[in-house]
Design a binder for these strands. Structure first.
Lengths: 230, 230
DNA sequence: ACACAATATTCATCAGATGACTTGTGAAAA
DNA sequence: TTTTCACAAGTCATCTGATGAATATTGTGT
């Protein structure tokens, strides 16, 4: 086994065994490298790899820490990854969104609270009141996220937020038929919202599936070039 | 921006722009480091991070290559991650499995082929014929994977295989009520199989949801310690 | 008790040297 | 001609040591 693999396995073992608990500070690089029997360079590469996976976090001047290990938290680090997926794969993500967001919407409808309904009402009203595509995109993202959160599964919520992040770069609200897109999108949100108001999980699920499918349709139709910032 | 971040962004940009295409070989470390304006050490850490994310692959003595960038392929690298998730998070993964595998099973039922049916028949027959828990675990995994594959979404298939990988470590077939577990599990597989034979997507979905829920129930009940190898 | 400066700890980066592995080349043998 | 083998070049892997930068701690003076 290579030195870096040795270090990664060693760290993984320390974490899995509880010797290094989530949030805990690790020994300094030099000491840790000695413990694991590798050089500081190799240990640093191992830590860098685990950092990329969201398992550890190195803070300059302070130390290296084990992260929370919550899937929802870890998923946030993968946005960079989704950005470079090929277009066809993005379409596969939409199918997954369709299934999972429907599921979450049904759960949200079953357990909705006045607070959730109030927030969703406000978001939909704001979306219908503006034509600024950036604002709409933000409101739309929050609308879907709030429903996922209400579903009660933080991992699912994180996964959906991650998958949506790529779609947002395509800015379908800015396309040639932007007005039409907004109109149908608003209608979709209304349908979902009403189903949740009625505490109707089945309708919430089908409305959400239809809405996501609609987004997918537009994305396929326009297939605008993604905006790569940075 | 730190040196390693600079290198990662640079590599990401080269990949996103197509300068480095999937499968392509990168320039040697020294040259790449010079291009990006960082030291070899920093570049190596960046490459190590991208390797952990499944975006690149360094082959000793040969060179560094850009990976296929297929989500299904990239997901395979995350098994290490799922291994260290806290137990409660694993339960959240089961809810996701329930939704997604149901979806895939419905799709598989709608588009099943004689080849798929033949394989599933054989897998179920073998599972019913043995009591070896390791074999059963393998066959069970293949059964679910084959159905996901038939669903036609490679990303979804990869995601499910990843999520299942953690559950397998718990070896519920070896628990105190192993015989009972096997019996109910086999019944669940029969139900799913028959629904697919009948080309009945709705039944396939509900049978799959019930089967996954059953697995989740047992896992909660026994909560056996995971076997950490390595 | 508080503010602030000095000190210590720790990660970040760089440079250079050496080892290990892969690959292609060319010569020798079949 | 084809196959086999040794060798050399190219490349990644690892280690060491030194220096810089950010943070945490300590001590001091008010």
């Amino acid at each position: 086994m290579s030195a870096v693999e040795t270090a990664m396995q060693g760290l993984r073992a320390k974490i899995a065994s509880g010797e290094l608990a989530p949030g805990q500070k690790c020994p300094p690089e030099g000491e840790l490298a000695a413990q694991l029997g590798v050089s500081r360079s190799s240990l640093r590469e191992a830590i860098r790899a685990l950092s990329a996976l969201g398992v550890m976090e190195a803070r300059h001047g302070s130390g290296t820490y084990v992260s929370s290990l919550e899937p929802a938290e870890i998923l946030k680090g993968f946005a960079l990854l989704v950005d470079i997926f090929p277009f066809d794969s993005v379409l596969e993500l939409f199918e997954i969104r369709r299934a999972l967001e429907s599921h979450a919407a049904a759960a949200a409808a079953a357990r909705s609270t006045p607070e959730l309904l109030a927030e969703l009402d406000e978001l939909v009203a704001k979306m219908e009141a503006t034509e600024n595509s950036a604002d709409i995109s933000d409101l739309d993202a929050r609308f879907h996220e709030a429903i996922c959160e209400a579903g009660g599964n933080a991992t699912l919520t994180g996964l959906m937020t991650l998958f949506r992040s790529r779609g947002r770069h395509f800015n379908i609200f800015d396309s040639a038929e932007g007005a039409k897109v907004r109109e149908v999108s608003n209608k979709g949100h209304r349908d979902i919202l009403e189903a949740i108001h009625r505490r109707d999980p089945a309708s919430a699920a089908t409305a959400t599936a239809a809405h996501v499918a609609q987004s997918e349709f537009w994305l396929k139709k326009f297939r605008p070039a993604p905006q790569l910032e940075g």
